[in-house]
């Protein structure tokens, strides 16, 4: 059997079925939410700008996800990573699942999987591993939303009712602060990682021929390498993005460009990505390549 089985017709049919499912579910929820939004009195223009700004916002991250499909394609063919990254998946999970399974046979992920049974086993491992949140959600979603989510708003509504008598005051209320704090907590974790975080990947140590090294006790020898690190450019991009966002917000408010408002964030994001290209091409390599941790170094 050759590597062709990874790009068999049936694999493409499965991928098509997955795509149809994801789109059908999304359309279903959009239609239901749209109807409800109209009943709630949310204007058509707000809904339309939600659609267009979300679509625009999605383009760049989606292209990054596409790039990760090709990272896994080397070992698993193009179709399985495509399926996995269209449903639930993300690169870290899928790479871990594939590598952990391949470890059993002492194979590294940088080589094409040619054995159908190994391929089938990896498919099972990826699926069973990643299905966890889908099993938890039906049990936990309602409970968590009621207990945590609504509790956040209960405070907010209470405060709002208290402030209603004097709406001119526009006092910050505790509910709003709690809600904003939770969001800020999430965003801050990502911002902090771009300031001084690093990513480390555990892979099999390879010999000169590119094969995994098996220890005397039968275990595969592992190596941890730094695969990404914050540095000058990540901080500059972060700052540029914040500046673009702030300037665009001020411009929109000053010139009353309410139609542009929903697009401020995607525009700021694209502009900052453009600045990343500029920094990498214009700054001297000693500056643009400066990261706090050496990429590729063993840890």
């Amino acid at each position: 059997m050759t590597g062709d089985f990874k790009a068999d017709k049936i694999m493409f049919l499965i991928a098509a079925a997955v795509i149809v499912f994801v789109i059908a579910q999304s359309v279903f929820f959009i239609v239901k939410s749209w109807k409800r939004a109209k009943e709630l009195g949310i204007s058509e223009s707000t809904l339309k700008s939600t659609v267009s700004s979300s679509a625009l916002f999605t383009v760049a991250p989606a292209i990054s996800i596409l790039a990760t499909v090709f990272v896994l394609a080397n070992a698993l063919g193009i179709v399985l990573p495509w399926i996995r990254l269209s449903v639930i998946g993300n690169l870290a999970y899928e790479t871990t699942a594939a590598q952990t399974t391949l470890d059993y046979w002492g194979i590294a992920l940088n080589k094409a999987v040619e054995d159908p049974q190994q391929f089938a086993t990896i498919t099972v491992a990826m699926t069973v591993g990643s299905i966890a949140p889908l099993i938890l959600i039906p049990f936990l979603c309602k409970f968590l939303q009621k207990k945590v989510g609504f509790a956040m708003n209960k405070e907010s509504e209470k405060d709002k009712a208290e402030n209603d008598g004097d709406s001119s005051k526009k006092k910050t209320n505790l509910g709003d602060v709690i809600s904003a704090s939770a969001f800020i907590g999430i965003v801050s974790a990502f911002v902090a990682r771009e300031i001084n975080g690093r990513t480390v990947a555990t892979t099999n140590r390879l010999d000169a021929l590119g094969n995994s090294i098996v220890n005397a006790d039968g275990t595969i020898e592992k190596v941890k390498n730094i695969t990404g690190s914050a540095g000058v450019v990540s901080i500059l991009v972060l700052i540029c993005s914040m500046i673009f966002m702030t300037v665009l917000t001020i411009v929109c408010k000053k010139f009353k460009l309410s139609k542009l408002e929903p697009f401020i964030m995607p525009i700021a994001m694209f502009a900052a990505m453009g600045m990343a290209i500029l920094f990498m091409n214009v700054l001297p390599e000693s500056v643009s390549g400066l990261t706090w941790y050496e990429i590729g170094a063993e840890v």
Binding site: A60, P61, I63, S64, A67, A180, F183, I184, V187, S188, F190, V191, R193, E194, V233, S234, I235, V237, L238, I239, C240, S241, M242, I243, F244, M245, T246, T249, I264, M265, A268, M269, F270, A272, M273, G274, A276, I277, F279, M280, N281
Partner: peptide, 18 residues
């Protein structure tokens, strides 16, 4: 580089909104 730095571009804008 644009795609290498998509996360700081995205979360920088989001942080600025708060």
């Amino acid at each position: 580089p644009a795609f290498d730095y998509v996360l700081p571009a995205l979360f920088g804008a989001l942080a600025a909104s708060y």
